[in-house]
Design a binder for these strands. Structure first.
Lengths: 218, 218, 218, 218
DNA sequence: TCGTAAACGAGACGGTACGTCGCGTCTTTAT
DNA sequence: ATAAAGACGCGACGTACCGTCTCGTTTACGA
């Protein structure tokens, strides 16, 4: 079995040694990237600017990420992780990363969506989330990564909760939960992303009602 | 009232005389912009590239548009207009710009959504539409313009059709059509924009069924 | 005869239109390059620095010169030209660009060499001349250009003066003037370039004496 | 007197312990530096390149030399030393490091200069010698070191030989040998360094003749 | 019908950021 | 304990486009 002295990444460049990576720099880069996106917007956020703000050489960024979009992706991922951990601490003993199940699907979904609305309005989350979404629209690999690492896991929580509701007989058994969740999640996403309408707690409540009960008369 | 020899736009620059504008150049610029977005993608499409390909001076672009996003917006608007006119010719005597009303809402909606799916898969439409959507996500004024000039009018057609369905008693009267349409339009939009899932005729059919009948058992 | 719409330089890049070149920028670049070489030395003089000091975009330098060495070459050539013109004004009616001929070769050569010594000590000339010489040593094309455009013409003046001396019988007819001149010019050049010894009026006087009369006893 | 555990050089850094220096590494660094200068030229020879080629850490270079110029200087000095030792072996019983004295100054000088011409044409010597000369032109301390350690000793040999000639009555007693030698050495040096003309055995022979006999008629 | 003023093509300009290279220092790893 | 390996902060490289600004050259209008 041949020893592999200098492993190469897909780009053909020798892969850097991750074990010797500076944790300090990584944190500073995450912080700088997030702060800049909030302060000056994504298009005016430059790799050079991130490096300067983080007190880091440009090469240190290019060594570990292929583009500013990937930097922001990991920074945002890290931010979400931290937030999730903090949230988990508050509700000790409870399953983290799950939509609560009080027995009332409608109420549970409304609660989660209200929380989501609040989050989408917090500039600290909104700016990077919007930037990543925009980049992903036009950059398919990044878009798919965004889906795989952020959107997907979140959507899975809805799938799980809807499955539970099906078992409880609150949702028809022949419904595909993966599609069903889009009836209330996607409208919110589109209003937020494309300014197709205002978002509010009232609005998401209505979405849940419409989706669960349908538009046609009974 | 004082004579105004060289009227100035809000930017303080003398407004160009639109009457003397070269139609030839405008067309060439539209064609070049759309072609480049399809061929090399939006981020690699540059004003310089558009000018070169259109055989036009850069200033001719900057004279009439403030940014490449606006150029593309108008180019795409123009493209949509042309396409709509062509489509209208095929169905003479019928109201253009409307969702057909056969009396069966579900069928009508499914038909329109199937057509939309086809369009979203045509690279000639997809590339510029995606580019504008992405730009609009991160550039609010442009996003709102995109909504006002393209998305809005399209969505209004759904509102009209849903209103007709309400009058025909096929949809509950207390439903807000502006929100209702999002139950089947937004999921498609999100899957397309964010790669959250595959899009197909089957999928949109399912969306219409779910939306009209709801998820909960009757 | 084919029209040549976009002539290309040897580098394969379209040649810029010299007619539209900014004289203002060129002057500013010359001045900045010379000043920086004097102030911070050649190795610390950067294209970026020249551009910044000249108030010019980097591309304006790269558009017209392939390297900082070539910039400095032309700047120095320009400086020499100006100096020569100023000098020529002072001695109206006299042939410019020539070594004076008073009939006494030894005296004439000593006078020119003394002037050269003075020039080599003037930092405004020394710094760029030294920089170009150094670069030329290790960069053959540039070295040859330096020889062709600066050194060569100067040495030719010695050839001319020595020929006159041969006709006047002050120098043997079988002597090759192109080689002869090196007996007093090259020693000065080497002392200056390589710090092999101090340079002074006395020293160059001695060189002329030794060269004309030889080292062996008569 | 206080014990000094880690003596510090003028730079304030702890002086490395020369006794523990790796002879192996030094040799590898010399070889790599010389080879690179020959192969890619001095400007493209980098400390990183030398280290990589020598299979040595960069720090091992920086520990012992302040710059790539100094590395090359010592490498070249070492090369010259080796060459001189090899040459000395061939002529056993004779004084090493001296210009032969056959009684005929002209012949002896011509012989040495012919050998020098040959050396200057050997790429293994030419490339590093030229590199060091160029660096020395623009970097005064290095230039003076080059003079002190390489050029000076070589020139001294000429001084010695010329003194002998003066005692033998072949050269006038009032001649300064330190200046005299420049009449034939410097022209060769300048032609070589600055491409002011071709170098050949014929050329150096002529230089010796001109220098010894002078240019003026007797 | 002809001048003339505007729009036009071309592209040079002052800039900003790109992604890369090499510097000289510092740290880790594996003898 | 030493030295290879190489990550780091830094600064310059040479390139690509930005948006502005002249340049002549059409072009179309109104005198």
């Amino acid at each position: 079995m041949a020893a592999q002295k200098s492993p190469r990444s897909a780009s053909g460049r020798p892969a850097p040694d991750a074990a010797r990576r500076s944790e300090r720099s990584r944190r500073a880069i995450y912080d700088a990237a997030l702060a800049l996106v909030v302060e000056v917007g994504y298009p005016k956020t430059t790799v050079e600017g991130i490096a300067a703000r983080a007190g880091v050489g440009k090469q240190t960024i290019y060594r570990w990420w292929p583009s500013k979009a990937e930097v922001l992706m990991e920074a945002f991922l890290d931010l979400s992780l931290q937030a999730a951990e903090e949230a988990a601490e508050g509700e000790a003993g409870q399953a983290p990363y799950a939509i609560p199940d009080t027995g009332d699907v409608a109420a549970d979904l409304k609660a989660v969506l209200r929380a989501t609305v609040d989050e989408l309005r917090d500039p600290r989350y909104e700016a990077p989330a919007r930037a990543l979404a925009a980049e992903g629209v036009v950059n398919e690999p990044l878009g798919r990564e965004f889906m795989a690492r952020l959107l997907g896991p979140s959507l899975q929580l809805y799938v799980d909760r809807l499955r539970a509701a099906q078992e409880a007989g609150q949702i028809r058994a022949d419904i595909d939960p993966r599609i069903a969740l889009e009836l209330f999640v996607s409208p919110l996403a589109q209003r937020w992303l494309q300014y197709t309408g205002p978002i509010s707690h009232e609005y998401t409540d209505t979405l849940v009602d419409y989706a669960l009960n349908g538009l046609a008369p009974r």
